[in-house]
């Protein structure tokens, strides 16, 4: 059991939903993003940390821009892992999921990456461009290193596909609540709710919803139908607009309270 599994077990026992926040490592700079991460960890149950890539094909304008800012600060996989190590020196509890694209991981070395992630305190990975069809290249190594390999379910996923996706997933499943890239359209909780409930027949893992969740009221509505919500672009945009760590913490606090008071869908 890694930190992610423990967190969801505790949430389940408390009958609560999870708030997962996303920021990009190295945006606005390493020290600034580290400070933000500590503030977010006071309110969020899990931290998702973006690894910058030049060609993020699943991301909308806000996260693309954050990636370019991080790259301008010369942040690559090595610096992201350093970031995690520094974060862990002050926080050994909050689960960390790294989210990014395969090429930088491949260049770093898949074995070394999974190994270092485990040693430095990473708990899960989302590699956007690794579908189950290409999983052999990284999933076994991730599992050997006690890393949850988190898979995406999407509006285009039917139940047969969901079964295939769930097969070698761990930690939680990430329901992409819009057909689109991050931070663009707003999610429709009714549609997402119906779909998520059909997908549940194929998995016992928690299902969290993300993409297109921007406000506390979005978060509350989605938390009612999923086991948690991910908020990314809205926080990343706040950083772009000059929000400091304290301001980001306040945003997370309001999201957290919205998620926690969300009523279960009937």
């Amino acid at each position: 059991m890694n930190r992610i599994d423990k967190t969801f077990a505790a949430l389940k026992a408390a009958d609560r939903k999870a708030l997962i926040t996303y920021i990009m490592a190295g945006d606005p700079d390493i020290a600034g993003s580290l400070e933000c991460a500590h503030e977010l960890a006071k309110h969020a149950d899990i931290l998702e940390i973006g690894m910058p890539f030049t060609d993020p094909m699943a991301d909308g304008p806000a996260i693309q821009a954050a990636g370019l800012r991080a790259l301008a600060n010369k942040v690559g996989v090595k610096e992201v892992l350093n970031f995690v190590q520094q974060f862990r020196s002050k926080n050994s509890d909050t689960p960390i999921v790294l989210m990014g694209y395969f090429n930088p991981v491949l260049a770093y070395g898949v074995d070394k990456f999974c190994n270092d992630c485990n040693n430095l305190g990473v708990d899960g990975l989302i590699v956007v461009d690794i579908p189950p069809e290409e999983a052999d290249e990284i999933v076994p190594k991730a599992q050997q290193n006690n890393l949850s390999f988190i898979r995406l379910l999407t509006p285009t996923t039917d139940v047969d596909r969901a079964a295939k996706i769930a097969q070698n997933a761990s930690g939680f499943l990430y329901y992409v609540s819009i057909a689109g890239v991050t931070g663009t359209a707003s999610a429709d909780p009714v549609k997402a709710g119906i779909h998520i409930s059909t997908l549940r027949s194929k998995t016992d893992l928690p299902i969290v919803a993300g993409f297109g969740i921007k406000t506390a009221s979005d978060a509350s509505a989605m938390a009612a139908i999923a086991d948690g919500v991910v908020v990314g672009s809205a926080l990343v945009q706040a950083i772009a607009d000059g929000a400091n760590a304290q301001k980001l913490g306040e945003l997370a606090a309001s999201l957290a309270s919205a998620v926690r008071t969300a009523k279960k869908a009937a």
């Binding site: 094909m57 579908p131 069809e133 290409e134 898979r151 509006p155 285009t156 596909r161």
Partner: peptide, 12 residues
């Protein structure tokens, strides 16, 4: 080669 795409595109 292969199919290194986001899950949303896989069914398509």
């Amino acid at each position: 080669g292969g199919r290194y795409v986001a899950e949303t595109l896989m069914p398509l």
